[in-house]
Amino acid sequence: MRLALKIDVDTLRGTREGVPRLIDALQRHGAGATFLFSLGPDHTGRAIKRVFRRGFLGKVSRTSVLAHYGLKTLLYGTLLPGPDIGRCAAAAMRAARDAGFEVGIHCYNHVLWQDGVNRGDAAWTERQMRLACKAFEQVFGVAAHTHGAAGWQINAHALELEARLGFRYCSDTRGRGPFLPLVNGNTIACPQLPTTLPTLDELIGLQAITVDTVADHLLGLTRTPPPGGHVYTLHAELEGMKLMPVLERLLDGWRSQGYELVSLGQLFATLCLDALPVHEVVPGKVPGRTGTVAMQAPRPLTPPALLSESPLRPGPCAFERRG
Results as ranks from 00 to 15, higher is better:
residue 1 M to R: 15
residue 3 L to E: 07
residue 9 V to E: 06
residue 11 T to C: 11
residue 11 T to S: 14
residue 12 L to S: 05
residue 15 T to M: 07
residue 18 G to Q: 05
residue 18 G to H: 00
residue 23 I to P: 02
residue 24 D to Y: 02
residue 25 A to Y: 01
residue 28 R to Q: 09
residue 28 R to P: 01
residue 32 G to P: 09
residue 33 A to M: 04
residue 35 F to S: 02
residue 36 L to Y: 08
residue 40 G to V: 03
residue 42 D to S: 04
residue 44 T to G: 00
residue 47 A to L: 14
residue 52 F to K: 14
residue 55 G to A: 11
residue 55 G to F: 10
residue 56 F to R: 03
residue 68 H to Q: 15
residue 69 Y to H: 07
residue 70 G to D: 07
residue 70 G to Y: 04
residue 74 L to V: 00
residue 76 Y to C: 04
residue 78 T to Y: 03
residue 78 T to I: 13
residue 78 T to H: 05
residue 86 G to P: 09
residue 90 A to T: 05
residue 93 M to E: 00
residue 96 A to I: 00
residue 98 D to K: 13
residue 100 G to S: 12
residue 101 F to N: 03
residue 101 F to P: 03
residue 102 E to Q: 15
residue 105 I to P: 00
residue 106 H to L: 10
residue 109 N to W: 05
residue 117 V to W: 02
residue 119 R to D: 05
residue 120 G to K: 02
residue 126 E to N: 14
residue 128 Q to E: 15
residue 132 A to H: 06
residue 133 C to F: 02
residue 135 A to F: 00
residue 138 Q to T: 10
residue 139 V to K: 00
residue 145 H to K: 13
residue 146 T to F: 06
residue 151 G to D: 11
residue 153 Q to G: 02
residue 157 H to T: 04
residue 157 H to K: 08
residue 158 A to M: 14
residue 160 E to C: 14
residue 172 D to K: 08
residue 175 G to H: 10
residue 176 R to I: 00
residue 178 P to F: 08
residue 181 P to M: 11
residue 182 L to F: 11
residue 185 G to T: 08
residue 186 N to W: 13
residue 188 I to T: 13
residue 190 C to G: 09
residue 191 P to R: 07
residue 192 Q to V: 12
residue 192 Q to Y: 12
residue 201 D to K: 02
residue 208 A to P: 01
residue 209 I to Q: 10
residue 210 T to H: 07
residue 212 D to N: 10
residue 214 V to L: 03
residue 235 H to F: 08
residue 237 E to H: 07
residue 239 E to T: 12
residue 241 M to V: 04
residue 256 S to W: 05
residue 260 E to Q: 15
residue 262 V to D: 06
residue 263 S to M: 02
residue 264 L to A: 12
residue 264 L to I: 07
residue 266 Q to N: 05
residue 271 L to V: 02
residue 273 L to P: 06
residue 276 L to D: 10
residue 277 P to T: 08
residue 278 V to D: 01
residue 280 E to A: 15
residue 284 G to Y: 12
residue 286 V to E: 15
residue 300 P to W: 11
residue 300 P to H: 13
residue 301 L to R: 15
residue 302 T to P: 00
residue 304 P to V: 01
residue 306 L to H: 13
residue 306 L to N: 09
residue 314 P to L: 04
residue 316 P to S: 02
residue 318 A to D: 14
residue 319 F to W: 13
residue 323 G to S: 11
